[in-house]
Design a protein around this nucleic acid. Structure first.
Lengths: 356, 356
DNA sequence: TTGAAAGCGGTACCAC
DNA sequence: GTGGTACCGCTTTCAA
């Protein structure tokens, strides 16, 4: 009996004026309803005043705007996103931002994206691929409108999750003919090949290689080694350093090459940071670059452009990668055609010093 | 009358089995309800199985887990966040990540935060303060559980918005006695003072200053200049470069100092990137460091630690800043005491070359 | 041009 | 331990 009474009273409560919704569970500040009350209109009119002002009578619009300002209303886009299934948010996964390579791409991506009114959910994956799965899971749980990934090597589980989520995705940095959805970058392998061909053309017979321990760097190294492998009169000295790389890696790298008997020739470093470290170490040891050794790095990023007269480099336009990725995702969420699913941005070899 | 009929029929529709909610507006995949149906339990049980597994009978838990796996369910944390007023997301605003200073802090922040199951909404503000207001607005619209800002200079509007949002906030990098909420960093001014005192103690009478054009760098410069100002036998040569800084800035910086008549003495650069540029330019001009000039930079960040034997530096533990900021926010969202609102992490002067 | 009602996909609260 | 119900704050749908 008691129960019936309780239910009845609940029902009665429900019969309050429809336009004045409010609740005891409420925690935060001003809502759309508050603004609506203040302006003497309905919620939906306020919503329209914010999202599609052209569909509201100018007079009304002004009243609503005043009410918004007066109340200090800040929309809750989570609620909006839930209702509309659009979060106006893109997620980005990069190995690390403690590295110009990725921070530049992130930078231009986030800039392009924000210009279009979107925001970035940012995640660092580290260079291990193992935890990518849980990261992707956590990200998909936030229902981003698009996804930017680094690299093209993903576990089967990750591929499945992304594919079945149906979220527009751009893989960046490397290249593949079988992207999850879209891919923007350049072939790391072909880049290494190009450096190898350069070395051959310049007639180097002694080649040093300082490579970082991550999949893209390894692809580059492989391209170089495969190219040189066809010529058996070439002597190769290798050293591998950890990721992410520091100047110290380069110093150690050259030290190691020399220990292994490398005394002259050309050195390919899979990043400019490493290359700069090699230059520092060479300087410390009194080795003249480019007279005794030639060095070619990779990157030519913002803090180093055109700074060392004898350091050659392979340049990839990292900014462009981020921009392109953003552009594709933005087009996709607008239902537009985003063009080719494989975008090869290529690379440019910048020769300096003895390599010219 | 017609209206009444309509209402009645609506009510009838509402009387469908309570446990089988579903709708035509539905766009995406698997929901909690789907899993519940599959497992033959109610939504709330599935919710508990995910969030508080200890409060579910082991048998039930297993059934639910199986259903989750089978259905490929990915929770919608937006919906959860709306219902619970907790987004498990922190927002971070940094000027740029194209700079080791901020990318390191971001890196450690995001790492700490993710370890605790939170994610990072990331925003670059640029070095201009003007657009901070709209950025903060857009961020607050996503209801993060906490906010990490860079620097302590914010417009009145920004301060008001954050304050009235009630969101736990940590300002980082600089120091102030009147933080919005919490502040973690070190006094940029005192850092500059310390360098000034060092120069005085070493007896330098000619001082060069290459400073970046942003508020924190200016604070450092001010600290130096104020300290030296008490001594009128000191000759100061200044040059200002734009932000963010590159090696090129340092090269131009030294060039400019020399043009202005600087030939010997000590140079303070407000960042290591600039300092390295100065070293490169000095090398290019045949100037011996540290014999002719002494250089002290700021940062000693990951890609440069301990790499140049004659470059002194002022070291701030950027990683620690990010960690501390994360720690404070995490404590706050858990309702714990986060300790002192002003956390001074200090700095360390690392002397090398002629400054030892 | 405006509004009422019904969700979006979860969680809080309370009853059982 | 488990379930019903009323929301979270907004947008969509449809009607006026």
């Amino acid at each position: 009996m008691v129960r019936t009474v309780a239910k009845a009273s609940l029902k009665k409560e429900n019969n309050k004026p429809k336009t004045a919704r409010r609740s005891r569970r409420r925690r935060e500040g001003v809502t759309l309803q508050d603004v609506a009350n203040l302006a003497g209109v309905s919620m939906i009119t306020v919503s329209r005043a914010i999202n599609t002002p052209d569909r509201v009578k100018p007079d009304t619009l002004e009243i609503v705007k005043a009410a918004i300002k007066k109340s200090g209303y800040v929309p809750n886009v989570l609620a909006g996103g839930l209702a509309s299934s659009r979060t106006r948010m893109f997620a980005a996964i990069v190995p690390t931002i403690s590295n110009m390579t990725f921070s530049k791409t992130m930078h231009s991506f986030s800039k392009s994206v924000r210009t279009a009114g979107y925001q970035v959910l940012f995640t660092e994956s580290g260079f291990e691929i193992e935890n990518e799965e849980e990261l992707v899971y956590a990200i998909l749980a936030r229902r981003p409108d698009g996804l930017m990934l680094t690299g093209v090597n993903h576990s089967k589980e990750v591929r499945n999750m992304i594919l079945s989520s149906g979220i527009p995705t751009v893989e960046t940095g490397d290249l593949t003919q079988t992207p999850l959805d879209y891919v923007v970058g350049c072939s790391q392998y072909r880049l290494g090949e190009a450096v190898g061909q350069l070395f051959l053309k310049r007639g180097f017979t002694k080649v040093g290689l300082v490579t970082a321990d991550n999949s893209r760097a390894k692809e580059r190294a492989k391209g170089l080694l495969d190219t040189l492998a066809h010529h058996d009169n070439i002597q190769i000295t290798e050293h591998t350093v950890g990721s992410p790389t520091t100047l110290r890696c380069g110093r150690d790298g050259l030290g190691s090459l020399i220990e292994k008997g490398f005394t002259e020739g050309a050195i390919f470093c899979t990043s400019d940071t490493v290359a700069h470290g090699v230059l520092v170490e060479a300087h410390a040891r009194g080795i003249i670059i480019p007279d005794q050794m030639s060095v070619i790095g990779m990157g030519d990023e913002e803090w180093t452009p055109d700074t060392h007269p004898s350091l050659s480099t392979v340049r990839i336009d990292r900014d462009l990668i981020g921009e392109k990725a953003a552009e594709i995702l933005l087009k996709r969420v607008e239902g537009e055609d985003a063009g080719d699913h494989v975008v090869d941005l290529g690379f440019e070899i910048v020769l300096r010093g003895s390599l010219v």
